[in-house]
């Protein structure tokens, strides 16, 4: 029988995660700066970069959080200064609704195409 072996394996596997924590302890600064583009780097996030700009930006984000600003407010504040380019997650607006929508439309379209190619008989 294969089942008991299975269960043993599974138990060992679970134990790996026993000592690990989810990353909920990551500070909010990290979370926000991961979503910010380092404007003077090549495709790096502020979080990943060690450039002067990124280091200052981390401080700014920290200060804003200390002032009690919400994540959203900080993004708005920075977008006002640097444009939407600084945020990695494009918000839904008239410029970007197609970005979010095209894949979904294609998915529905594909689904319709399949139903035409498939019969129940």
């Amino acid at each position: 029988m294969k089942k008991p072996k299975f269960i043993n394996l599974i138990l060992i596997f679970i134990l790996i995660f026993k000592t690990s924590y989810a990353n909920e302890l990551n500070s909010q600064v990290d979370q926000i700066t991961k979503n910010l583009r380092c404007l003077i780097c090549q495709g790096q996030s502020v979080y990943d970069s060690q450039s002067d700009f990124a280091i200052s930006m981390k401080t700014v984000v920290k200060n804003k959080l200390d002032e009690g600003k919400e994540e959203k407010e900080i993004y708005e504040y920075l977008k006002n200064k640097y444009g939407e380019w600084i945020v990695y997650e494009p918000e839904l607006n008239q410029n970007t609704f197609l970005l979010w929508l095209i894949p979904l439309i294609l998915f529905i379209f594909g689904g319709l195409l399949i139903t035409r190619k498939v019969s129940i008989k």
């Binding site: 404007l39 003077i40 002067d52 700009f53 280091i55 200052s56 930006m57 401080t59 700014v60 200060n63 200064k81 640097y82």
Partner: peptide, 13 residues
């Protein structure tokens, strides 16, 4: 000192 004032002015460097 820490570059944060420049960010208030929207500077990158």
């Amino acid at each position: 000192k820490d570059g944060t004032k420049s960010i208030e002015f929207g500077a990158i460097g």
